[in-house]
Nucleic acid binder design. Structure first.
Lengths: 103, 103
DNA sequence: CAACTAAGGCGGACTTAGTGG
DNA sequence: CCACTAAGTCCGCCTTAGTTG
């Protein structure tokens, strides 16, 4: 089913990017395997939203910044995804560009 | 009291940046004034974490991206703060810098 | 006025069990 | 195997009321 919440949408995006099943993701995040499938499905379909601690563990398992899972707009989402893979020098340069170019 | 949770820390950071009282913030976010002080205090001290919908309203009232309130590391937090004030051209340039400079 | 807290009700996350691709 | 869902339990947010600088 199509994700209805922002969190669910981002979670599914990140999981498909990582090419993991819902259960594999949950186990990586330290969630009991017997409740794994149900919980991830509930998150992605927007039925429920996990506690922040769980969100952090999911983000770690998916290797994305936890802020990505809560990003409302696609621009911010893409930004933090690129950020995590960028080198230290690129990060400094990007911050300089942004702070110099305030609207 | 010192904030114990990430969300509470970010919320307080953004609120003090906006120079608002806890009650003023809550009212701006559409929270009933009689429960305002208690709820914001509980958020900032890490006693509770609000629903995502409430977090979005708080972020709007504070004029920060909602992802900022969930940012684990200071680098990501600073990044999304600069992002929202940057011009469209600066944003494109920053994205180009980050995508070119993957570690 | 501004920030914080204890206690209780109650909505929603988590568990269980099971269905459909 | 993989994704999804209904129903019940129970934890934690929200409310109330009141305390502290």
């Amino acid at each position: 089913m199509a994700p209805s919440s922002v969190f669910g949408l981002r979670l599914r995006q990140a999981r498909e990017l990582a090419a993991l099943t819902q259960e594999a993701l949950a186990v990586r995040a330290g969630i009991d395997e017997f409740t794994a499938s149900a919980r991830i499905s509930q998150y992605e379909t927007g039925k429920h939203v996990p506690r922040y601690e769980i969100a952090c563990r999911l983000a770690d398992a998916l290797k994305v910044p936890v802020a990505f899972l809560y990003a409302n707009d696609d621009g911010t989402a893409e930004l933090v995804l690129l950020w995590q893979h960028a080198s230290a020098t690129s990060r400094r340069e990007a911050l300089a560009v942004l702070s110099a170019g305030a609207a």
